[in-house]
Design a protein around this nucleic acid. Structure first.
Length: 574
DNA sequence: GCCGTTTTCGGCCCGACTGTTTTCAGTCG
């Protein structure tokens, strides 16, 4: 049984308790569920190895919840949950996933109309039986139908790269408005979560009414969920929701903290505030006894400082170790804008790229890169005229003839890892290249053992410097290949192979949690564009660096922040 | 139900918006 399945059972208990109006217990179950779902290690295995002690050690899991988890792992269900389901036989998780429907409304709907499932709810709404019941207005049937359609269309979340492409222009336009003094996208976008459920705009303005008017009538808006004097919520045409909040300038830092989250990070922040005799909300940090006394609020830094902490980068704010690291003074020193000197994965017109070597080099230089590697595809990708040994030597000669001021162009290749872990280019020619990246482009469905052995064999090749886009996933197209990531990280460290953080919007590979794991395992990274055209060269700045930060990767583990010679010295066999 | 740099008992994060509420419950983030 997976951690997510265990978490789901606890969440269901929380919802049933909420339905009954029980105080505090629901939050305890919810918190435990969240903690379990975020755990790296499978709980099932830990429990089998170490018994109930392994459960009790988890923060937020006490005697009672540990007992229920153990029951679930032992016999496959939890008696108390079964009784709750019998008493109110509703699919409470599915029903409460509908926006605007919570546990209490589920109860009302069941008692009055016998609604048990999502399709019951849809049928009742379509038949016009929802409106007019206690707690339900005459339009609520309509709203529920829309919410169900939304839920079914997208599951509610989209990859962050897709969301950014849609909302950055909105942000830029808002900034141009004379009534908006400052505009920031906060929330999970600022934390750079892999998928985004909604977008949170924070606006500093002394004319909130105008902001609200503008926001709720933008061309991208298909519906308005809510609109008050300082807060509005809309559905955008790309299928996700956006919230906007207006606050005055003196609250900016507090509001930014609050709207960046995560929820669990914020809870800890407020608890720390209380422990120091303060109250923290989106308007500032206040004295508990005299709320007119604002201690901090204008900047995030002063709020953290008043709570005895250094500023914590937003990408780390998940209550997943950042407070401990901050207190101990060992927050990672992360890479930031302008830190990348090199880009080690670039395709050109020699294979499937849209621009020449020279065009790519000039564009990379304009972005501040000091060196790039040209890494066109090789033999087995015949569809894109992948290079064989002769073509690679020809390209190498062409690159050596180029002489562009201010940027060094390295000779490289993106070689294919064959099914058995061998490569599709002879070692002799690989030895002549400056940078060799190896990648999976075929046989995506091998078993975990086969796939892991295949990749490790490739990393053991003395010429393979970087493992490109390690899991080969593509959003909406292809799931990640099945790799034993612990084994891959260990092999990368042992063989001196660099792991790539591929910033191509559909890849974002390695993903955040694997980066963090690899940091802990001692691995090194490059952040590359995987560019196939000139505009793609910016991906490392807009997506790659934020992803590395999200994965807690210190700047000194990202080796293309180094000057060219130092970078090359870090590669295998040098 | 969980937890302890106030505490093994008595607290538990905070506020906006909606609907139908005439003072607040439910939902959301």
């Amino acid at each position: 049984m997976t951690n997510d399945e265990i978490g789901l059972a606890l969440r269901e208990i929380a919802l049933f308790l909420d339905m009954r109006g029980v105080d505090f217990k629901p939050r305890a179950y919810e918190k435990a569920a969240h903690t379990l779902e975020a755990l790296e290690k499978p709980l099932d295995a830990a429990y089998r190895a170490h018994g109930i002690k392994a459960l009790n050690e988890i923060p937020g899991v006490g005697k009672s919840i540990a007992g229920k988890v153990a029951e679930l792992l032992d016999i496959g269900h939890i008696e108390e949950l079964e009784r709750m389901r019998e008493e109110t036989p509703v699919e409470i998780v599915a029903l409460t996933a509908v926006e605007g429907v919570g546990p209490r409304k589920v109860k009302t709907l069941y008692d009055a109309l016998g609604i048990r499932t999502l399709s019951d709810l849809r049928a009742a709404a379509e038949a016009g039986r929802i409106g007019g019941m206690p707690g339900f207005g005459k339009n609520s049937g309509e709203k529920i139908l829309k919410a169900i359609a939304f839920l079914e269309a997208s599951g509610g979340r989209q990859p962050i790269s897709h969301v950014l492409r849609y909302v950055r222009p909105i942000e830029a336009r808002l900034r141009e408005q004379p009534f908006a003094d400052q505009v920031v996208i906060a929330g999970s976008v600022r934390r750079f979560r892999e998928t985004i459920g909604d977008v949170d705009f924070l606006v500093i303005s002394s004319a909130p009414e105008q902001v609200m008017d503008y926001f709720t009538t933008m061309p991208e808006v298909t519906g308005v969920h809510a609109r008050g004097p300082t807060k509005a919520s809309v559905r955008l045409k790309n299928g996700i929701d956006a919230d906007l909040r207006v606050v005055p300038a003196e609250c900016f830092g507090a509001a930014l903290c609050y709207f960046t989250g995560s929820k669990y990070h914020n809870v800890v922040m407020r608890q720390m505030a209380i422990a120091r005799g303060y109250k923290l909300n989106e308007y500032g940090l206040f004295h508990k006894d005299d709320e007119s006394k604002c201690v901090a609020g204008r900047t995030e830094e002063e709020i953290f400082e008043a709570l005895g902490l250094p500023w914590i980068p937003p990408e780390l704010r998940e209550n997943n170790g950042e407070f401990e690291a901050a207190r101990e003074g060992c927050l990672p020193e992360l890479a930031g804008p302008g830190d990348l000197r090199g880009d080690l994965q670039i395709q050109t017109t020699w294979t499937d790229g849209a621009a020449s070597i020279e065009e790519m080099a000039l564009a990379a230089r304009a972005l501040g890169r000091e060196y790039i590697a040209i890494t066109d595809h090789t033999r087995d990708l015949s569809m894109v005229r992948g290079s064989d040994e002769a073509k690679l030597r020809e390209q190498t000669a062409a690159i050596k003839k180029l002489n562009i001021d201010g940027i060094r162009v390295l000779c490289g290749a993106e070689v294919n890892i064959r099914r058995d872990g061998s490569l599709d280019v002879d070692d002799e020619v690989l030895a002549e290249l400056d940078v060799v990246g190896a990648a999976i482009h075929h046989h995506f469905t091998l078993s975990r053992d086969e796939m892991t052995a295949r990749v490790i064999r490739a990393m053991e090749n003395p010429h393979v410097d970087i493992f490109f886009h390690p899991t080969a996933r593509k959003f909406g197209q292809r799931p990640p290949v099945d790799l034993d990531m612990d084994a891959i990280i260990a092999a990368a460290v042992r063989t001196g192979t660099i792991l790539e953080i591929d910033a191509q919007p559909d890849r974002l590979d390695l993903k955040d949690e694997h980066v963090r794991k690899a940091v802990e395992g001692g691995a090194y990274f490059t952040i590359d564009s995987d560019a196939h055209s000139v505009p793609d060269l910016a991906f490392p700045d807009t997506l790659g660096i934020p992803l590395s930060r999200r994965g807690w990767a210190p700047k000194d583990r990202v080796i293309n922040t180094l000057p060219a010679e130092e970078f090359l010295a870090r590669l295998k066999g040098r």
